[in-house]
């Protein structure tokens, strides 16, 4: 095996130049909590690892037009301690905080969770429900892309050669808006989602659901936005009947696999249950605003 080279550039431009010159054999290192596992399991063999943790703009959380721009290398622990983001997007923060242990939280990043492209990534359904955008920088410049468009399948992304995700933009929220994320795992910590569900909703002055987005994780090759599930919530007061239609729509959208964590039938059933519960939490949060 050829020796792996390590670079820690100080700017995005340098990082992009290094990646573009490496001709596909390079990997971006953010927290490393997936990369090192894959490297040691011989699943990947990078000629070059580009550590982006030293790029200060990728480590910042910046308020922007009522929302937040979160650097791709911001860790779960940093996000969890940011009162501003927690108040506006509690579901995104709780999703990120569910990833791994204390030690993982100190390293793992939002950008890494997104670009690792696991179908079971916890933060991704929450970001999709939040209608988050991410900025991608590459040899041809900067572009913005919906978070939902980054992963294309397990371990596969739409990023071109030399492109990296530099930040994630969580949009502004109106009053009476909230989100929530729930996942099911067999134990309470340190496991990978069997199913994850994110619900984001906005209520009007009368308590009627004006907008909603529902996203599912771990039930398809990539996280799914489920407009049919959101439609069950919109236009009503999120009563029991709406929640049952939401659960049915969530179940209908599932295209899971059987694996050691759960069967197709089990995952499908759990998706409905979690959708109901997540919607209940988001609703209670939105009402208490």
């Amino acid at each position: 095996m050829d020796a792996m080279q390590y670079e820690a550039p100080g700017s995005v431009d340098e990082a992009v130049a290094l990646l573009a010159a490496a001709d596909g054999a390079a990997w971006v290192l953010a927290g490393g909590t997936d990369l090192l596992v894959q490297l040691r399991a011989d699943l990947i063999e990078p000629g070059l690892v580009v550590d982006i943790k030293g790029i200060s703009e990728l480590r910042a959380i910046t308020p922007e037009n009522g929302g937040f721009r979160i650097g791709a290398a911001v860790t779960g622990a940093e996000l969890g301690e940011h009162e501003g983001v927690k108040a506006v997007w509690p579901g995104v923060v709780e999703a990120m905080e569910l990833i791994g242990s204390v030690q993982i939280q100190g390293r793992a990043t939002l950008g890494g969770n997104l670009c690792n492209a696991s179908p079971a990534a916890d933060s991704v359904p929450a970001l999709i429900a939040a209608e988050a955008l991410c900025s991608v920088v590459g040899p041809k410049g900067r572009r913005e892309v919906a978070v939902a468009e980054v992963a294309t399948g397990p371990g596969e992304t739409s990023l071109g050669p030399g492109e990296i995700v530099v930040d994630i933009l969580l949009p502004e929220r109106p009053a009476r808006a909230a989100d929530a994320y729930l996942r099911f795992i067999p134990r309470t910590e340190m496991d990978i989602a069997v199913v994850g569900v994110a619900v984001s909703l906005v209520l009007d002055e009368r308590g009627v659901c004006a907008q909603a987005r529902v996203a599912l994780g771990a039930v398809a090759p990539r996280a799914l936005l489920v407009p049919e599930a959101a439609a069950a919530l919109i236009g009503g007061t999120v009563d029991d009947d709406a929640l049952e239609r939401l659960a049915a729509a969530a179940r209908a959208a599932c295209r899971p696999i059987d694996d050691m964590r759960g069967t197709v039938a089990y995952r499908t059933k759990v998706a409905g249950v979690l959708a109901r519960r997540a919607a209940g939490i988001a609703l209670a949060r939105a009402r208490s605003e």
């Binding site: 290192l29 490393g32 909590t33 090192l36 596992v37 030690q103 993982i104 100190g106 390293r107």
Partner: peptide, 22 residues
Amino acid sequence: HGVCGACTVLVDDQPLRACLGF
């Protein structure tokens, strides 16, 4: 591979799994 935590050390006073960093 980052599951057991036996290799935990503190870096910048934060717990870190030493097997998951270069």
